[in-house]
């Protein structure tokens, strides 16, 4: 399996990482170099094995449906890049340019 420039553009879009053409081209070779090492995994017989997610064999603990929440020692406006009336503000989504769309 080899990564193509289209793959790089696709995953860069999924990851919201703006990547220009030159960088995309170099990423193709960087990722392929790394992934070439990974191909050794395909030679391992793992039939009948469960994929382990996390090594601790614990069950998730369940918390009581009860406050209080973990407090913030500083309010949202102290760390929000843009805040107004308690809301976080972001540039409007392009799919919502007309204000009537919900």
């Amino acid at each position: 399996m080899a990564v193509t420039i289209d793959d790089v553009r696709h995953i860069a879009a999924l990851a919201r990482l703006g990547v220009d053409d030159a960088r995309a081209a170099s990423l193709v070779s960087e990722l392929n170099t790394i992934l070439a090492h990974m191909d050794v995994l395909s030679t391992v017989d793992t039939s009948g094995l469960d994929a382990v997610a996390g090594i601790g064999a614990f069950a998730a603990p369940l918390g009581a449906d009860l406050g209080p929440p973990i407090p913030l020692v500083r309010p949202i406006e102290s760390f929000a890049p843009q805040e107004r009336d308690g809301f976080f503000l972001v540039p409007r989504l392009s799919t919502h340019e007309d204000p009537e769309a919900a």
Binding site: R16, I76, A80, P81, Q82, P91, L93
Partner: peptide, 16 residues
Amino acid sequence: GVRYGLRLEGDGLRGM
């Protein structure tokens, strides 16, 4: 860039 840390502007939300 929505809630904390660095935010750099770009073309709309996607650009941000």
